[in-house]
Design a binder for these strands. Structure first.
Length: 770
DNA sequence: CAGTGAGCGAGCTTCCGCTTGACTT
C-alpha cells in the first residue's frame, strides 16, 4: 500500500526527493514524456481543429504499467513534473494515461531540490494548468506540421531521407550564411608597427609600444621611417586608470557546453553525458537548464566555503538574472550539490568537468578583481598624427580570479597586457629598433559546436535538452561536417628600422587552419537555398521568437491554441502545395566549362550519393563519365581544372602476385586496392603520384594489421571469423557482427558456439525491427 | 566501409522536447 505517490521526470531526482519526504511518500519517475503524436502519417486530425492523436511511447510501456499499478493503490497522487510548458504537459498526459481521479490528484511544482522547497510545494498544491498544457500542444503540433510537410517535399525535390524543421533548418542556415561570408571575404592588409624603446637615463628600462595607426602600403612605411631618422623620443604621459573584472554567472547548459569546449575541447554531447553521470552520482544539480539562478541554500553554502577557504574579503553575495530569450527557468543553474567538495572521486574527464562547475559556481559568489590599467604615450615629434602607446595592467586584488577565469572564443582572443616598467612623464627614450609587419584582416570565424549552440540560444531557438541532439541531427543528415582543415600559406612583407637603416624582407605565414569546426556540405547548401526560396517565413531567424510570443499568450489564456495553429497553417500549407507543383528539382548544378579532350561540357551537381562531377550529359550518345567530389571540394567553389583532375582516378599501378593494384579516393580518403583488400594511404602519400612499390608496402602493412586483429578462423566455414575490435572480441558472419559474451574466452570458441551466438543475435535483430 | 550516378516503382525516410540505458566494430 502506498499512501502518497509523487511522480517526477527524472529517476535521479526521485531518489533525492524520497530522502527528504520520509516514509509516507513513494517517489517514482516518468522518464520524461510518456506519450507523443502518432508517428504514422501526420498524427494530427486537421479537420477536427488539429486534434492530436496521441500514442503511448513504446519504450515507456513498462514505466506506464508500474506507474499505473502504484497509482491505483495510492491515496493521493502528486504530479511533480517540471514547472514549465513541457512539464505541465507531462503532468496532464500522466493524468490522462494513468486515468487518475481528480479528487485524489494534486499538481505541485518546485524549481530547486531542497527540503524547504519541497515541503513548501506539498503545502501549496494546485490544479493542472490547461492553458499551459495547450501552449505545449500548440508547440508540439506546429513542429510536427512544419517537419512532416517540409521533409517529404525535400525527398521529392532534392534527395530521399532528408529532413527539415523549425530548429535544425535554421541552424544549418546560420552555417551556410557564415560560409558564404567567408567565401566572399576579401582580406585587407596593413602594416602593424611596433617600436622597442629604452630609457636614455639609466638604460635599465625597456618597453615595446605600438604605433596608433596602421599603414596601408610599404612606401608609406618607408616614408614614415625616413621621417623619424635621427629622432629622439620622450614619454608625454603616463595615465593610470582603475579597473575591475566581475565573475561570470553560474553555468546553464549552453554556457557549460561552451566553456567545456574552450577549456577541454569536449564536444557538446560529450559534455552532456559526463554531466549526466555527475548528476546521477549526486555531485551536481540538473544539467539541462536555462537558469542562472542559485537557491538560497546554495548561496549560503558558497558563502561559508569561500570565507573558510579564501577569507572574508573574497566573498560577495550575488544574484544573477537570466538574459536568454524564451528561458523557462524550471531548474536551478548547474552547480555542485555540496559546495565543500572541491573535487569528487570520479573518472578523469568527469572530474575535470566537476571541477570546472565548482570553480564557476564558487567564483560567481566572489568579489571583483581590482586592477590598474596603465597607458604610456610616446609622440612622434615632427608628426602629430602619430604616437606610440603601450598598455599594461596590474592586478591589485585577485578576487574571483583566484579560482576561475572564463576562456574566450578564438576570434575574441586578445594579447594579454602585462606589467610596464616604471617610466614617468618627461623620461627620454631611444628607439632601439622598429618593425613593420604586414597583417591581414581575418575572415569571420567558422562556428564550432559550442559557438553554434551559443548563437541558437541567443536567437531563442531550441532548448537545453535539444542542443546536443540538434547538432548530431544536422551531421547525420550530412548537411554539416565537423572537421579539421589545414591552413594555406601566404607571403607577408616585413620592414625593419634599426640604426637609421631601413630593410625590407619577406616571410611565409600559414593562415586559416581550422580545428573541429562545422562546415556546411553541398547538400546542406542546396537544401538551405531551396527552403529559403519557398519558406522564408519559417526560415526567418525570428520565427521561433515570434511563435513563442503566441505560445505565451495561449499560456496566459488569452488565445485559443487551435486558432493560432490555423492562422499559421493555412498559408503555410498553401506555400507547400505551391512548391510541390511549381518548383524544379534542385541539384545545385553548375556548369564549369568544356572538357578540352572531348569538347563536352563539365558540370558538378548533387547525385544520388552526394556531390559529383560529370563530363557530358545524359542526352549524349555516349554515357557521361562520373567522379565523386572530394571532401574538401564544393560545388560552389570547385574550378574546371580541379574537376578534370578528379577523372585521373582510379589509377592502375600494375600487378602484385598476379593481381591488379589500383589507387583511388573513396569515402574515407585515398586508398590502394588489391583484390578485395583496401589499404588507406598515409598522410604523406599522394594518390596521383604514388608508385607500385610503395603501394605494395601499404598492402603488406594492412595484411599484418588484419592478421593481428584475427583471433580465430574455422575450417567449417570461411565466412566466420573471430576478431578483436574496439569494444572487445566479436564474430563476423555475412558482413554482420556479433559480440562475444564476456563470460566466454574467445580463443576457446567452437564453431557450434559461434553459430549459437549468431542465431541469438539474429533473433534480437528481428525483434528490434518490429 | 572503399565498386555506384538511366528509369521505373514499392516501401521507406521526417519534426521538437522530455527522459535514460542499450548498443556500438
Amino acid at each position: 500500500m502506498i499512501k502518497n505517490l509523487v511522480i517526477v521526470e527524472s529517476p535521479a531526482k526521485a531518489k533525492t526527493i524520497e530522502k527528504f519526504l520520509g516514509k509516507e511518500f513513494t517517489v517514482m519517475s516518468s522518464y520524461g514524456h510518456i506519450r507523443d503524436l502518432a508517428k504514422k502519417d501526420l498524427g494530427i486530425e486537421k479537420e477536427k481543429g488539429y486534434k492530436p492523436k496521441y500514442i503511448q511511447s513504446p519504450d515507456k510501456k513498462n514505466v506506464i504499467k508500474e506507474l499505473r499499478d502504484a497509482s491505483k493503490t495510492a491515496e493521493m497522487v502528486w504530479l511533480a513534473s517540471d514547472e514549465d510548458r513541457e512539464g505541465e504537459a507531462i503532468a496532464w498526459h500522466l493524468f490522462e494515461v494513468l486515468k487518475l481521479d481528480a479528487n485524489k490528484t494534486k499538481r505541485i511544482v518546485f524549481h530547486e531540490i531542497t527540503p524547504k522547497a519541497i515541503t513548501n510545494a506539498i503545502q501549496n498544491p494546485r490544479e493542472i494548468d490547461y492553458n499551459l498544457v495547450n501552449a505545449q500542444q500548440a508547440r508540439r503540433v506546429l513542429d510536427r506540421l512544419v517537419g512532416f510537410e517540409l521533409s517529404p517535399l525535400l525527398w521529392k525535390k532534392v534527395k530521399p531521407s532528408l529532413s527539415a524543421g523549425r530548429v535544425q533548418s535554421v541552424a544549418v542556415r546560420l552555417l551556410v550564411e557564415r560560409e558564404r561570408e567567408i567565401i566572399a571575404f576579401e582580406p585587407d592588409s596593413a602594416f602593424r608597427i611596433t617600436g622597442d624603446f629604452q630609457d636614455s637615463g639609466s638604460g635599465k628600462f625597456e618597453l615595446t609600444a605600438e604605433l596608433n595607426k596602421r599603414l596601408k602600403t610599404s612606401s608609406q612605411v618607408t616614408d614614415f621611417y625616413e621621417s623619424i631618422k635621427g629622432q629622439d623620443f620622450q614619454v608625454s604621459s603616463v595615465q593610470k586608470k582603475p579597473g575591475k573584472k566581475s565573475p561570470a554567472a553560474p553555468f546553464t547548459t549552453s554556457t557549460l557546453q561552451q566553456e567545456a569546449a574552450r577549456k577541454f575541447g569536449f564536444s557538446v554531447s560529450q559534455t552532456m553525458s559526463l554531466a549526466q553521470r555527475l548528476y546521477e552520482a549526486g555531485h551536481i544539480t540538473y544539467m539541462r537548464t536555462d537558469s542562472v539562478n542559485l537557491s538560497n541554500d546554495a548561496i549560503a553554502a558558497a558563502e561559508s566555503e569561500i570565507k573558510k577557504s579564501y577569507g572574508e574579503n573574497y566573498h560577495k553575495a550575488r544574484k544573477y538574472s537570466t538574459k536568454a530569450k524564451g528561458a523557462q527557468e524550471a531548474h536551478e543553474a548547474i552547480r555542485p550539490t555540496y559546495m565543500q567538495n572541491h573535487t569528487v572521486d570520479a573518472q578523469n574527464a568527469e572530474q575535470k568537468l566537476y571541477s570546472l562547475i565548482w570553480k564557476r559556481t564558487i567564483a560567481s559568489q566572489m568579489s571583483d578583481a581590482k586592477l590598474e590599467k596603465t597607458t604610456i604615450s610616446i609622440p612622434v615629434k615632427n608628426n602629430s598624427d602619430f604616437k606610440f602607446t603601450a598598455q599594461g595592467e596590474v592586478l591589485l586584488f585577485d578576487g574571483f580570479l583566484k579560482v576561475y577565469i572564463e576562456s574566450l572564443d578564438d576570434d575574441k582572443k586578445e594579447d594579454v597586457a602585462g606589467l610596464l616598467p616604471p617610466l614617468k612623464e618627461g623620461d627620454n627614450l631611444n628607439l632601439i629598433q622598429s618593425n613593420a609587419i604586414e597583417r591581414y584582416s581575418n575572415y569571420p570565424a567558422r562556428y564550432t559546436e559550442a559557438t553554434l549552440v551559443k548563437k541558437l540560444e541567443e536567437l531563442g531557438i531550441g532548448r537545453p535538452s535539444t542542443y546536443a541532439p540538434t547538432i548530431s541531427t544536422i551531421q547525420k543528415r550530412n548537411y554539416v561536417v565537423k572537421e579539421d582543415r589545414p591552413g594555406k600559406e601566404r607571403t607577408i612583407q616585413q620592414i625593419s628600422f634599426k640604426a637609421d637603416q631601413i630593410k625590407a624582407s619577406k616571410k611565409v605565414e600559414t593562415y586559416g587552419s581550422e580545428k573541429s569546426k562545422l562546415f556546411p556540405t553541398d547538400v546542406g547548401m542546396v537544401v538551405n537555398d531551396y527552403l529559403i526560396e519557398h519558406f522564408d517565413k519559417v526560415m526567418d531567424y525570428s520565427f521561433t521568437a515570434n511563435v513563442e510570443k503566441e505560445f505565451d499568450s495561449i499560456a496566459e489564456g488569452q488565445r485559443q491554441w487551435s486558432a493560432m495553429i490555423d492562422e499559421f497553417y493555412k498559408p503555410f500549407h498553401q506555400t507547400v502545395e505551391f512548391a510541390e507543383e511549381h518548383s524544379e528539382r534542385k541539384s545545385g548544378e553548375r556548369i564549369l566549362g568544356d572538357d578540352p579532350e572531348s569538347g563536352k561540357p563539365v558540370l558538378v551537381r548533387i547525385g544520388k550519393y552526394g556531390p559529383i562531377a560529370q563530363i557530358g550529359t545524359a542526352e549524349d550518345e555516349e554515357k557521361p563519365q562520373f567522379a565523386s567530389l572530394r571532401r574538401d571540394q564544393h560545388i560552389e567553389t570547385i574550378t574546371l581544372e580541379e574537376a578534370l583532375e578528379l577523372f585521373k582516378l582510379p589509377r592502375q599501378l600494375g600487378e602484385h602476385n598476379g593481381k591488379k593494384v589500383s589507387v583511388s579516393i573513396g569515402r574515407f580518403g585515398p586508398y590502394v586496392r588489391y583484390d578485395s583488400l583496401f589499404a588507406s594511404l598515409k598522410k604523406e602519400d599522394d594518390p596521383y603520384s604514388i608508385n607500385l612499390e610503395r603501394a605494395i608496402e601499404l598492402i603488406k602493412e594492412k595484411q599484418e594489421a588484419d592478421a593481428k586483429k584475427l583471433i580465430k578462423v574455422f575450417d567449417e566455414a570461411e565466412k566466420i571469423k573471430v576478431q578483436n575490435g574496439k569494444y572487445g572480441p566479436y564474430i563476423t558472419h555475412k558482413r554482420k557482427n556479433y559480440r562475444v559474451p564476456k563470460s566466454i574466452d574467445p580463443k576457446t570458441l567452437t564453431y557450434e558456439q559461434c553459430m549459437e551466438i549468431i542465431e541469438k543475435g539474429q533473433k534480437k535483430g528481428t525483434k528490434k525491427k518490429k
